[in-house]
Nucleic acid binder design. Structure first.
Lengths: 234, 234
DNA sequence: CGTATTCTTGACTTATATCAATGTCGGTGG
DNA sequence: CCACCGACATTGATATAAGTCAAGAATACG
């Protein structure tokens, strides 16, 4: 584990700590350990004892679950500023999934037994955490609804739109998903196969909606994609 | 709204209030309103302003969402002792779904602005609430995983097993799901159609796994159903 | 450069939805 | 109390979206 100097201003800017005083923030940071995670490496693995909880400072993580028969799904993508891995606060003793760096990342970590301190010393933060989980629950329900009622193409459209919203970088000709993401990854986020995703993206490229590439995706016409996601024909 | 005398001992027995003192419990109950909900009626409807949060004392509720194009899904089933409808605590102003009584039910309700009181006067309860949401998040992820990786028959098997676990009543020949549930309901919980559910249940009945009926389901061989759910051939 | 991923594309198969018809239960009112 | 009606369920025939199998092309990397 690489311990590095922690950028105080970076943490300060997170909305999570809006209502935290400088003094309290310093205390929190003092008890945290910063760690660099190279692309492809895990912050923690599914089934491990939940010894720490984390905050993503920089980079991008995929939270993955493997089923008993070896199939993989991506539960969610972690963006900078997100808390993650607080399984213990939700009465679990182990991590329900693995957190893998999709890009070179920097995380802050706290020992699990710091959670009550984290929360009690700072009630506003408890509310934030609660809202975060609530949001996540809603996202999960949205995904369930989409998987129940929509066909694959619309689901892929929704996922891509969500990704450019959360991790989009503006370019000359469109908006790029700002981390390496394979067809397989998109398939694991939508409950389909990489073949189907590849076909769909090829079709979209032919229509001028997107521009593909190896582990790359540039959305040229977000409005058109929205139309498609909402089921307004074609 | 029907206001009735509140059964103190009934509330006391809920694990949610394990760490709540009698005095605190009385205060909570004093500020609550009890309400009887006949079968088929809604406690609240999707899109309504989230004015109250609730506790189910008796009966059974289905939380449903309707999509923009009119398709329905069942988000979850609420069992006695469950908190529900606390959208406001999760930073929402409206209810994301409708709560419909699947059986004659009794709920306790509190005004939304009681939530901070509810939580601050009773930190143990806040932890409980957090864990409840965490559990729900996990359930949602389980459902997403199942919908991503399993075929319909196994998903239906998983849902039926979950229902007999949460709402099973032992009978001479098996375990009955203890509220009225239609094929359509099961379809809306698994992301399929009532036709497919009907075919699956007919096949199971032929194998002696279950016994169907109009809005009824009796599981005769839970172990066999588990095998099926885990994908161990058959 | 060659080797390994990742991606594309075609041919074929299959699970499940859709369409359609009929059957059955259970409550309501004549 | 029985007949009827509406809701729920079953089942067959057919259509189709998407998975599987298979081969090859493109791209990145050591």
């Amino acid at each position: 584990m690489t311990v590095a100097a922690i950028d105080r201003t970076l943490v300060r800017s997170l909305s999570l700590f809006d209502k935290t005083s400088d003094a309290e923030l310093d205390k929190l940071i003092a008890s945290a350990v910063s760690r660099r995670v190279p692309q492809g490496e895990a912050v923690f693995e599914q089934g491990q004892a939940a010894s720490h909880f984390y905050l993503l400072l920089h980079g991008r993580l995929k939270v993955m679950q493997v089923t008993a028969d070896g199939q993989q799904i991506i539960v969610r993508v972690v963006h900078p500023g997100d808390l993650f891995g607080f399984a213990r606060a939700l009465q679990r003793v182990d991590y329900p999934g693995s957190a893998i760096a999709a890009a070179e990342s920097v995380v802050l970590s706290w020992a699990t037994d710091m959670w009550p301190v984290f929360v009690e010393q700072n009630p506003a933060l408890a509310v934030s955490a609660m809202q975060t989980i609530g949001q996540r629950l809603e996202e999960a329900h949205t995904r369930i609804r989409e998987m129940s009622t929509e066909e694959v193409e619309r689901r892929v459209a929704h996922v891509v739109l969500r990704l450019i919203k959360q991790a989009g970088r503006k370019e000359a000709t469109g908006v790029r998903i700002d981390f390496q993401i394979s067809r397989q990854d998109i398939a694991e986020m939508t409950g389909t196969t990489l073949h189907t995703v590849s076909r769909i993206l090829s079709a979209w490229e032919a229509k001028g909606l997107v521009e593909g590439g190896r582990q790359k995706l540039l959305v040229i016409n977000p409005a058109g994609l929205s139309q498609l996601a909402e089921g307004n024909y074609q």
